[in-house]
Design a protein around this nucleic acid. Sequence first.
DNA 1: TTGTCGATTACGAAATTGTTAAGAACTAAG
DNA 2: CTTAGTTCTTAACAATTTCGTAATCGACAA
Lengths: 225, 225
Amino acid sequence: MEKKLGKVLVVDDEKDILQIVKYNLELHGYDVQTAENGVDAIDKNKSFKPDLILLDIMMPHKDGIQTCIELRANPENDNTLIIFLTALSDERSEIRGLELGADDYIAKPIKPKLLVSRIHSAFRRIIKDDSKTIIFPNLEINREKFMVKHNSVEVALPRKEFELFALLASKPGRVFLRNEILEKVWGNDVIVGDRTIDVHVRKIRQKLNVDYIQTVKGVGYKFEI
Amino acid sequence: MEKKLGKVLVVDDEKDILQIVKYNLELHGYDVQTAENGVDAIDKNKSFKPDLILLDIMMPHKDGIQTCIELRANPENDNTLIIFLTALSDERSEIRGLELGADDYIAKPIKPKLLVSRIHSAFRRIIKDDSKTIIFPNLEINREKFMVKHNSVEVALPRKEFELFALLASKPGRVFLRNEILEKVWGNDVIVGDRTIDVHVRKIRQKLNVDYIQTVKGVGYKFEI
DNA sequence: TTGTCGATTACGAAATTGTTAAGAACTAAG
DNA sequence: CTTAGTTCTTAACAATTTCGTAATCGACAA
């Protein structure tokens, strides 16, 4: 099964709309569930835990605004995006929705392409943070946390060691020439001896116990899982 | 001086619009600067470092789309929101803008209330993290009361210490560079000595007895429970 | 065997952070 | 406006960690 981009819960009382939206989002790789009213939406949110909720404002059994308020009241949903979806294209309700903690607003009638674009855009904001992490089985390198997690054990690497390791891991399998490493980790103008790199490599190997870094004689080093 | 909500750079070639937008945003507590074209915008972005850029699409000297591409190419602006502002209310350009990495889209003619709402909403996403109370086992950080409750004992921290601690705790595990800390706790224009951060860290450690703050040499500090 | 290249080790230099105390800058109360 | 009490910043020095080097060892190939 193809990996899904993210989970979206669509809430609207018109089945036609649910269908159109569901179809279009699934086409673009999202995992979609639907709800027909606010009560239903809050239930489905609990079980499905979507990343994003598309919420119609005008609905029987708890309208979208009320639903939004309730969702936002629960800190569990802090990271859930809420986008209102509504026929009321007047300024007032748009403002109200945004003030209530919604993240965006899409006016009906729905234009599929625009819808998908907005949702892509919304997701881009969510996943931006993860992009700074390089993940392998048993190994996680987080540039933001300056941390290497190896077999669920966090290992702290000093700056040079970390930068060297992260550089190699950024392109697994690719061999980095010694010159290249010097240039990227130490900078073009700093001059350090030949053994410096080796020593750092050694320290990394020592700290991780496993030999992720392989020597390519006469050439340089490469990262291999 | 009242504390500003955030920094906004408004880019448009029509001076009327710049004025209207600037006026309305300043009225609501934002720190606003303006630019009249893309080239100017990129300059001002460097010096002003806004949190959000309102970008007109149709402009002489580098249009908004091109400007957006250039801004997004620089990882320094990863956390800068970009909202397009344009008279082209057709679906096409809206999609294009969003695909390019813009975060939202506001159609002209500008309705001041709506504009302000959207911007509030956009900012809410940025500052979501420093809202209210951060809770961990045995530790509770309350931004409103400026209180830290540690093992059910309330500890009062002075402002700088509190802000520093709250900043680190807002993203547990993540390392904050010294620069980042200075910028966020002290502000971009204040210049303080090198040992200032250390001294504050020490005082926090002292008052809480437990070492929630860890040093990452050569990099910065991080919070870890 | 010998030469080359990387691995390893230990040590001193350099860089960075920790600690302390003093006084400057602020605040709140009178 | 003064005073008393905090809070903030700085500076000097101590402690620690990281960095780079040199010396030596080991593997491998010619």
